[in-house]
């Protein structure tokens, strides 16, 4: 069971829409090669919501941008593949890739403020995407009709499309971004920190609506977030990333109930629980490693309270733990129990 052909089973046996395997992405910098994404594999089925969580700089956004091939110019794909319905996106020409963008995979960017060009009306910016991707092209009334419908779908007055981005509130802007992401009928939406910049109430509303839209339209969504609470609310499966590696993968429920990697365990323990048993939140000591020179063995070992000699020397592969849960830890079987020994 190598990391190369991972959790097809997780998506319930359905043929996956997206299959990332053994993705290695490094950034060329003046001081050396930054190992941003290291041997990451996962798959995502139709109408499925998956979450990628991890600290800032753990590579989750790099993974997301790779799906659209939008990583910065100094990114180098060392190995691996990104199969979209069987086609390797990394092997396409720029021209071919352009046709996949937005029409198949679209994205809700973090910080909706900056996702809009300040000099064009909101509707115009959505129209230009629709103009590129519908074949045969939509007629003018069809386009207008579709725009109105999209705005209603995300809970906005269709009149908003004639406004400029700076005339909208944060929540409206984010809703319009979602409308834009839906405009070309994509099969997958990548939501990169879709609600971080918003206040908690708007955040909850938007997540709720996004989930409804996803279920109604049968979309797949890949949520990227550092916020476990957000991920728990809206995803079916979850991948936990640490220092460029996927360290745990499984159904969201399972991972939350019984995390199998010490990192996920500690992340979850750091959230104070209102309804569960009373306990002190645990803080995760230390800082993520320098990816110019990642530590030998398990990348998490310098911060892991249970690290053994083996962890310091050998890199743990992804291992199947439960029926559909995977973790890259030598002591995965004992993780939750060991947690009870924490002070």
């Amino acid at each position: 069971m190598t990391a190369d052909r991972l959790p097809v089973e997780v998506s319930g046996g359905r043929a996956p829409l997206l299959e990332v395997s053994g993705l290695v992405l490094r950034y060329d910098t003046e001081v050396g090669e930054v190992s941003a994404v290291e041997n990451v594999s996962f798959s995502l089925g139709r109408a499925e919501a998956m979450g990628l969580v991890g600290e800032s700089g753990c590579g989750k956004t790099s993974v997301a941008l790779s799906l659209l091939r939008l990583a910065p110019d100094n990114a180098r794909y060392r190995s691996g593949s990104i199969l979209w319905e069987g086609v390797d996106l990394l092997g396409l020409s720029d021209q071919q890739m352009r046709l996949y963008r937005w029409a198949e995979i679209s994205m809700v960017f973090q910080g909706a403020m900056n996702a809009w060009n300040p000099v064009y009306r909101v509707g115009e910016q959505i129209r230009e995407a629709m103009y590129q991707h519908f074949d045969p092209p939509l007629s003018k009334p069809e386009t207008n009709q579709r725009l109105d419908d999209l705005f209603r779908l995300v809970g906005l007055d269709p009149a908003v499309q004639n406004r400029y981005p700076h005339e909208l509130s944060g929540g409206m802007r984010q809703r319009a971004v979602i409308a834009m992401a839906l405009s070309c009928e994509p099969k997958l939406i990548i939501a990169d920190e879709p609600t971080t910049a918003l206040d908690v109430i708007v955040q909850a509303q938007i997540l709720e609506e996004l989930k409804e839209i996803q279920e109604d339209l049968g979309l797949s969504i890949l949520y990227i977030s550092h916020d476990m609470a957000v991920i728990a609310q809206v995803t079916d499966t979850i991948g936990v990333m640490y220092a460029g590696k996927l360290v745990e993968f499984g159904p969201t429920r399972e991972v939350f109930r019984r995390p199998r990697h010490p990192y996920s365990f500690l992340l979850l323990s750091s959230i104070p629980s209102v309804t569960g048993p009373r306990r002190r939140p645990v803080s995760l000591e230390g800082t993520p490693p320098n990816l110019l020179a990642p530590p030998a063995g398990c990348r998490f070992h310098p911060r892991c309270p249970w690290a053994t000699e083996q962890c310091r020397n050998d890199e743990p592969p992804m291992m199947q733990i439960g029926p559909s849960q995977w973790a890259a830890c030598w002591n995965a079987e004992q993780v939750p129990e060991m947690g009870d020994q924490l002070p």
Partner: peptide, 22 residues
């Protein structure tokens, strides 16, 4: 370097359009 350029690229607009229009 602005995010809306990234958005324009993600939308699959042709490069010339990103350069001139955005």
């Amino acid at each position: 370097r602005e995010d809306f350029i990234l958005t324009a690229r993600a939308k699959g607009l042709p490069e010339g359009m990103i350069r001139d229009r955005h």
